[in-house]
Simulated assay, not measured.
Amino acid sequence: MVVIATTKVYLNKQTAIPRQIIETLEIGENDVIEWDLDKDNNVKLNFRKREKEWTFDDIVGLMKTKEKTNAVELEMEPYQ
């Protein structure tokens, strides 16, 4: 294994991800870091893209029903 960079642990146990790692792995805002610790106390980091948080607009229309519905009435229901 080759050491690419070192970082310091700051106040509140925060640290920074080295720029070379960020650029190589294309790490962005809201990506997730998974920390694994093996039996010998060696740390392995896995960077992954955060799964999208679904909104109501994302799921509208994904499912079908045999029940007849009226879109205008359904839209007004929360206001009644």
Rank of each mutant, 00 (worst) to 15 (best):
I33R: 02
I59Y: 04
T15D: 03
A16E: 11
F56H: 11
L62I: 09
V9F: 02
N70C: 15
L37Q: 10
K44Q: 08
M63Q: 14
I22H: 01
T7R: 03
D40T: 08
R19W: 04
V3R: 03
D36P: 03
M76F: 10
Y79F: 14
M63C: 12
W54V: 06
N30R: 03
R50E: 07
A16F: 09
A5K: 09
K39P: 02
P78L: 05
P78H: 10
D31S: 03
G28L: 05
E53W: 07
N46W: 06
T65L: 10
N30S: 08
E67H: 12
F47R: 00
T6I: 10
E23H: 04
Q14P: 01
N41E: 14
E75W: 12
F47H: 01
D40M: 05
I59E: 08
T7H: 02
D36E: 15
V32L: 15
N46L: 11
W54G: 01
M1A: 04
K39L: 12
E77I: 14
I21K: 00
E29A: 11
F47K: 03
K68S: 14
G61R: 00
R48H: 05
D31R: 00
E34G: 07
K66I: 02
D31P: 00
V32R: 06
Y79A: 09
D58R: 01
K8C: 09
E23K: 04
D31A: 03
R48K: 11
P18I: 01
T55D: 02
E23W: 03
N70L: 04
F47G: 00
K8N: 10
P78M: 06
D58G: 02
L74M: 15
N46I: 15
D40C: 04
L37Y: 12
Q80T: 15
Y79K: 14
W54R: 11
V72P: 00
T65K: 04
K68P: 03
V9E: 01
